[in-house]
């Protein structure tokens, strides 16, 4: 019995060790991303894997979802094509106003909107120094003309 348990344990161990390498190997994507975009840093796993927890079914961040939507799979050979497609489409996964690729090149997390970023649809400009709103006061020039006429009439008044 003890031998069977041992054999079972060894078998299980061998099975685990013999499992597909992709389930356990360190993925190349962070390094591939750094190389492809000429970054001076290595992106963290968390830009694709929520909370940095890797494994099947954990690619749920906006950037990660976008990459998968552009062809990225577990097969590393799909990475260059997916990245090229992201770049061509200028994908902005979170509406920061510029692309995820640009955000990475700026050293930013592609899954968040930096405080100084401009939303995709900026607030329309408002002209004037907020001095008054709504309709203008009635006819300023006529008011000036009225004053001038009054002054002129006053000057022309002749005493009796």
């Amino acid at each position: 019995m003890n031998a069977l348990r041992s054999l079972g344990s060894v078998s299980l161990l061998l099975a685990l060790l013999g499992a597909p390498a992709t389930a356990w190997a360190i993925p190349p994507y962070p390094g591939d991303l750094q190389t492809a975009l000429k970054l001076n840093y290595t992106p963290q796993c968390a830009i694709c894997h929520e909370g940095g927890v890797t494994g099947l079914g954990t690619v749920t961040t906006p950037f990660g979802v976008s990459m998968r939507a552009h062809g990225l799979t577990d097969d590393p050979s799909t990475f260059p094509g997916a990245l090229a497609a992201m770049e061509a489409d200028k994908v902005d996964s979170v509406g920061r106003g510029y692309s995820d690729i640009q955000a990475l090149q700026l050293g930013q997390n592609p899954d968040t909107i930096p405080p100084n970023a401009i939303p995709t649809s900026p607030v329309p400009p408002d002209y004037g120094c907020n001095v008054g709103r709504g309709p203008a006061p009635p006819l300023l020039p006529v008011s000036i003309a009225g004053f001038a006429l009054f002054f002129h009439a006053l000057r022309r008044r002749r005493p009796r």
Partner: peptide
């Protein structure tokens, strides 16, 4: 003259 407006009325602006 939007960029030069001083007031923000709907029309007849300074």
């Amino acid at each position: 003259a939007g960029p030069a407006q001083l007031t923000s009325w709907s029309k007849d602006n300074l």
